[in-house]
Amino acid sequence: MWNYTEAVHDHFLHPRNAGPLSDANAIGEVGSLACGDALKLYLKITDAGVIEAASFETFGCASAIASSSVLTDMIKGMQADEALKITNRDIAAALGGLPKQKMHCSVMGQEALEAAIRQWKGEPPVPHALEDGALVCKCFGVMDAQIIRAICENGLKTIEEITNYTKAGGACGECTDTIAKILAETITPLAEIKPKARMTNVARMQRVLKILDEEIRPRLATDGGDIELVDVDGNRVIVSLRGRCSHCRSSSVTIHNLVERLLREHVDTDIIVEEA
């Protein structure tokens, strides 16, 4: 049996603000039956942006119900913009903590709150960055941006912790490698990330030439190929493949997977490589 706090038991057995809110003007929905938990959060926000009333409907375990209940108590009377600052850690803390395997319940509360306020503001339920991102966990429908956010806001350090907070990787486990990659990239100390200083065209050209010479040419040479720089125009780098690469059927693969990837890594993340 889980070691739930008194507050979790209390909110589970005596949920505050349960049931739909008939005059709600903002609703946030997250989760699904398939995932095993879901929360529908109802808010009534005044013209002045104050959350006047909040209620919830939750399908899920005791900690999911308790997280929803405590959240509605926390946000009542708050300015909507203030409420957006509530993190999943705040929700868990208001319950005196949650078992680590249950932290995803607090994340669900935060996501529903954000979705509701976005709806009130006339924004799509999830930020574009989230929609455009990559689906990492197919079983639970978790996007890369959700994982990155959980890592940053909770200081997560292991794949297991990420699963506890987001559910990602908790079923078939196929995405474990992707999660590991996201984790490694996210927790790389900021200092190690190359500053994205504005580069002059000359500096950019010099760096492109350097990477072509040091990193790319030697690799192509092993296949009997070569590369020549034709032009650099802003973030567009135009190249021409030579030797055996010039009539290779996978030349466009080479351009994108090797040349563009290495230039983005070493020179600038928004570089686009084109073949002359």
Binding site: G60, C61, P99, Q101, K102, T163
Partner: peptide, 11 residues
């Protein structure tokens, strides 16, 4: 046999 009782995420 629910997911939540075992600490796993699946039934």
């Amino acid at each position: 046999g629910s997911a939540c009782t075992s600490g796993s995420l699946e039934p």
